[in-house]
């Protein structure tokens, strides 16, 4: 399995998980010039912008560690762009991170970080 399809399958699993947790998926892989938001969802009235990280090993750190401050800032810019483009005015915005660690061909550990970070 290539890294690309691994990431794709991870995002599918994350989306399925978020829906099961009661959220409504609004958008997947929303793109603009500045980059991509993996999953956009609604949790009640809160707009949730979700970054999904999938890894096969922890050799280079856990998946969630990959969401560095630089990446957080980029997601922040993307969020502003999304809100403007979608023409919505959300009551509340939240940044979530879903980390998936694949441990066997048919087995993975999923962790959902609600409000994983705030911008500085």
């Amino acid at each position: 399995m290539t890294d690309r399809t691994l990431g794709q399958r991870g995002e599918d699993a994350a989306a399925a998980y978020l829906e099961r947790a009661g959220m409504t998926i609004v958008d997947r892989n929303w793109r603009c010039k500045a980059g991509e938001i993996d999953i956009v969802a609604l949790d009640g009235t809160t707009l949730v912008l979700c970054e999904v990280k999938t890894r096969r090993t922890v050799a280079k750190g856990t998946p969630e560690e990959a969401v560095t401050v630089t990446k957080q800032r980029r997601i922040g810019r993307l969020a502003a762009a999304y809100i403007q483009q979608a023409g919505i005015e959300p009551v509340e915005v939240r940044f979530d991170v879903v980390s998936i660690l694949v441990i066997a061909a048919d087995r993975a550990l999923l962790r959902h970080h609600r409000a994983a970070f705030v911008l500085q």
């Binding site: 922040g76 969020a79 502003a80 959300p90 009551v91 509340e92 915005v93 939240r94 940044f95 409000a115 705030v118 911008l119 500085q120």
Partner: peptide, 20 residues
């Protein structure tokens, strides 16, 4: 309301910024 953020302004040094 807005993107969740926590910022401190007003000539604060590192120890004050770490207050966040």
């Amino acid at each position: 309301s807005g993107l969740p953020s926590f910022s401190i302004v007003g000539l604060a040094d590192v120890a004050v910024l770490e207050a966040r």
